[in-house]
Design a protein around this nucleic acid. Structure first.
Lengths: 341, 341
DNA sequence: TTTGCGTACTTAATCGTTTTCGTAAGGTTA
DNA sequence: TAACCTTACGAAAACGATTAAGTACGCAAA
């Protein structure tokens, strides 16, 4: 490991001068600066992030807090994985690295998320796919470390949100426009911002459309649980007055619904229409292609990265934004035209 | 940020004693040790990883090298995401953190993967989902940093491999046992160990079974490319002597095949049988359920983590293993019984 | 009594940087 | 010529930890 000391020896200057030369400070002669840089390159020098971070209190490292429940973390959740992916690309382009934050630490017992973040000296943290009511998450979000959250907004903290209200409104309006009047919604677990917002939007939009929603058409399901979605769909199909269209909490669940529907010998969309949410790869490629809302995960990740880095680099000058990213309705062909033909 | 200095002041002992007390060295009085620990906890002390890493040359941090091609990295590839997920859980349980390695670094121009790993001082690196012929990857793998690779083996370096030979053999043998004699294989991109191994196993197994494989039944496809798989499947269906079963490179591709088959009004498995590979969530839940090989990603990640950490912690005593993890055949119902009934 | 030894601490160096404060040399200005 | 800047560099402290080496003390063995 060649250090500045080695370079200083090789160049016959002090370490201080080497440091200043490599960091392009003004008070180093042009000639010396060039020589130092040349030798440094020749010797294969590169800095030591620990030493630098220790001295400067800046790590060029960003923490990522994803749920770390065993056995599944956000990594296997394609919506979040995709956001993380674009977040990663964006921060790396600006010279930052990514380190996962968790609460394990063998040497010192448990560390809270905040402690762990400080232990690693991260410059900021991306919080996504967690229980936002977890006291430790709240503690981290309200600390002095810059933070950006996905799909949840803390007061005075950066957030990037996908526009669920508009998404559901677009979806429901589209389905309505195709002539459907009996529309069911199997939604995800309650208590999350996302779910509440979607349910509210469903009800609001229904009211705007003067669409009557039967109580049993609003079903409490689970996100991304295929078997459970089959079960829920089955119950809807068993109703004497069954819906003509079922809206699922996400594309995976829609697949579960499809399975159940097909198992009963019904076909989509002829006998019953369905819609999903998320715009996952498979949904876009299925037969029939699923009607769904594509969430622009690439944009969400990139904006989160840009805003967070701005906040890190110009704390005062960056305004705390809650950015809303709209999804795009994909018509597909899982919702059929009813009535008017 | 409360440091050891603060604790030493509060306890009236030297920093050295504080350090030794917190690290449970023997030469600190029991009483003093307890007092120091108590005060440290009260003051909310936790260590500074940079300082510690600087001094000890140990970061308790493991690098992860996933392809960082824009716009897709291994994070959106469910097979690798799932491996990374279990790897993460396993290393975190042992007190290690995970940092992504890449080749960007704003401050010092480009850094090679190896340089970046040393810059961050990681104790080891997980290499997966990359081009193993990339000189930089090779350089890193052959450096003095402990490394474990997934689905590729470097000489004298840890590796965890999924047993593709056995997987394909099991799959083909199963299909053969169901009476199929005209079996096509749409495989993934060549030049990777995985693909070559699978093709070889397909041919070897066919030979063992005395199964004649027509040349046009071995099709060069692409991994995880649904539209491309549809196209490839379509071409097979156009053959005058079409196969009775098509084996796809992966489950996603199988979905592409299903689409094409259904679009032609054929049904699975009555008119044509199919099989996938990977055992992804959807494959297991589809209708008809896909016949496929589940790759035990959870095991792969965990073994990789355990072996790497062993190598890090007991370099001499750990033997360099290439662990082979077997997949499990899932029968599903996408391959029908032919002939004998 | 002397020697030796274990215990419980402290001192001080060190890891690789960055940065403040000097300072010497040379040039300007009055 | 005296006073004052600039410019280019170096010395040294500091970041927060670890650790080898040293010291002082009490006590047991010879």
């Amino acid at each position: 490991m060649v250090s500045m000391k080695d370079i200083s020896a090789a160049c016959g200057v002090s370490v201080a001068t080497v440091s200043k030369a490599l960091n392009d400070h003004k008070d180093v002669g042009e000639e010396t600066k060039l020589k130092i840089k040349k030798i440094a390159k020749e010797m294969g020098y590169f800095p030591n992030s620990s030493a630098r971070a220790l001295k400067t209190n800046k790590s060029y490292n960003i923490g990522v807090l994803f749920v770390d429940e065993i056995p599944k973390s956000g990594l296997t959740h394609d919506y979040f994985a995709s956001i993380l992916d674009s977040f990663k690309v964006a921060v790396e382009a600006k010279g930052y690295d990514l380190t996962f934050i968790n609460s394990n630490n063998l040497r010192k017992g448990r560390l809270s998320y905040l402690e762990h973040s400080k232990f690693r000296g991260v410059d900021g943290v991306l919080i996504a796919c967690v229980d936002f009511h977890d006291p430790e998450v709240v503690e981290l979000a309200q600390s002095d470390i810059p933070v950006v959250t996905i799909d949840y907004a803390f007061k005075d903290r950066l957030a990037v949100l996908s526009d669920n209200t508009k998404g559901i409104r677009d979806l429901l309006t589209y389905i309505y426009s195709k002539g459907h009047r009996k529309i069911a919604y199997i939604h995800g677990q309650r208590k999350s911002r996302v779910t509440e917002e979607r349910i509210q939007s469903f009800l609001d939009t229904a009211k705007e459309l003067a669409l009557e929603v039967q109580e049993e058409f609003i079903v409490a399901g689970k996100y991304r649980d295929i078997p459970n979605a089959s079960k829920n769909a089955g119950e809807l199909l068993n109703l004497k007055d069954r819906p003509t269209c079922i809206l699922f909490s996400d594309d995976y669940s829609a697949i579960g619904g499809m399975n159940e529907i097909k198992a009963r010998g019904l076909s989509i969309p002829e006998d019953i229409s369905i819609a999903g949410y998320d715009g996952s790869d498979i949904a876009l490629q299925m037969e029939p292609q699923l009607t769904t809302i594509i969430q622009d995960t690439r944009m969400i990740g990139r904006i989160a990265a840009d805003n967070l880095i701005n906040m890190i680099e110009k704390p005062g000058k960056t305004e705390v934004e809650h950015v809303m990213i709209e999804g795009i309705l994909i018509e597909g062909n899982s919702v059929r035209q009813i009535g008017t033909n």
